[in-house]
Design a protein around this nucleic acid. Structure first.
Lengths: 236, 236
DNA sequence: GGCTGAAATCTGATATACCAGATGTCACAC
DNA sequence: GTGTGACATCTGGTATATCAGATTTCAGCC
């Protein structure tokens, strides 16, 4: 009996591993090619060769085809049947990805403000407080981490799994670029103010305000990224 | 010389065929399974079997795998590596797809109001006028057609290709269900009023108003669809 | 009787072979 | 020189075989 209890207790210590965590070749190819496209390794209109990619990765064409299918569904490449895969991603695409994110994040912020519970309010406030500290101390990596946590919390509050997944696909920059941004004190300060305003609006349950400040935040910071990645500035 | 001109003129008469128009097995499987999922042929959580599907379609597993990969990227199914494909779609998913559409369509309406040109204004107005007539005469099929034309025009005005593509994937009902909706006179009238308001706002260049009325339109009509497909009502 | 673990089996993941449409090349006819 | 068309070739699409993780089954043990 004691033994049973003990073993149960021990088993409970281990978090369930996410089955989707496993890495497949397909997934590796997908991530690598996606990242390469988003970082501008391929010119818009350039063709991708299935056999060539398979050879470069040292794998068969099967997982490559599947990875390309995912990229196609995401809109980053276009498949012309029996003719080839063409890169679709461009600076315009990136701009629109920001707009999509802005639209979806503001929708989710709206819902979060309506649906947030007491405990979640406290947690959101606590992350906001941590952001304030990290901004003051200039810890860029910590800020990136908190940033992600912050948006994830809002996603959780909204209880919108699908929307959260959709938003994830609208990201065209990676951690290294984020780091560049967060190293700039002025940018850090601006982002902090926006985050605090978002947190305040959501905690206050002001869904319309939350929607607006979130949208402005995503668009503004998105433009900053655009500027860095493509060296140009565009407004809505 | 005359011959050259003539042949050029003749060639110009034929529209270029879209290379993506070609139907592949993969695409057929994709569309069929997608439609089956959206129409509720599979319960949420139900497993799909690659070999089984391939056998049902009388094809090999290769195109089936690719089709499933597309559905996975769309979020309709989830792939658990080496364990199987699970249906993710549910009424909650459908609700969130509407919210996504509302967010994206309102963003696109906002941009359309800002970017629309003189000729496009006239065209949008003319479609709106046709809608008025079709609503009065109760021509459901014609209304469905005009509806699509209307939204496509707005997409074109916004000059947002990526967003337009993204919106297309947020549709969880097909033509037959649309038809049911448009057969109801009250619904037709309501939709007409909304469409006219949207057209007016965009033509007037009032981007904020366009955004708001578009969002309300998508959410309201979406709820009507939800009601029909899932027999329940949900609000934001 | 209930638990353990090895074997059978199911299923997705990957590799390979082959098919067919699309494109490029080039000799030939005018 | 220009245009035509057969042929070589490239490339994605599909089929099939094999590999390996996951699940199930069930005999054997406590």
């Amino acid at each position: 009996m004691a033994e049973t209890d003990q073993s149960t207790a021990r088993a409970a210590q281990f978090a369930k591993i996410d089955p989707a965590f496993q890495v497949t070749v397909r997934d590796h190819v997908y991530r690598t090619v996606r990242s390469a496209i988003l970082s501008g390794s391929f010119a818009t209109g350039e063709k991708l060769n299935e056999r060539g990619l398979a050879e470069q990765f040292g794998v068969s064409t099967t997982p490559v085809k599947e990875a390309l299918r995912q990229l196609e569904t995401e809109g980053l490449v276009e498949a012309l049947p029996r003719r080839g895969i063409v890169i679709r991603f461009s600076s315009q695409w990136a701009e629109e990805m920001i707009l999509a994110r802005a639209a979806l994040e503001s929708m989710i912020a709206h819902l979060a403000a309506k649906r947030i519970g007491k405990q979640a309010k406290a947690e959101l406030q606590s992350v906001a407080d941590l952001m304030k500290k990290a901004t003051a101390s200039g810890d860029a990596d910590r800020l990136i981490e908190l940033n992600e946590m912050f948006h994830d919390q809002i996603h959780d509050c909204s209880r919108c799994t699908y929307l959260a997944k959709l938003i994830e696909r609208q990201q065209f920059y990676d951690a290294s670029i984020r780091r560049v941004i967060h190293l700039d004190p002025a940018e850090r300060q601006k982002a902090l103010e926006e985050h605090l305003a978002i947190a305040q609006a959501i905690i206050a349950g002001d869904s319309d305000l939350a929607e607006r400040v979130m949208r402005d935040h995503v668009v503004r910071s998105g433009d900053t990224y655009l500027n860095i990645v493509f060296g140009k500035q565009e407004d809505i």
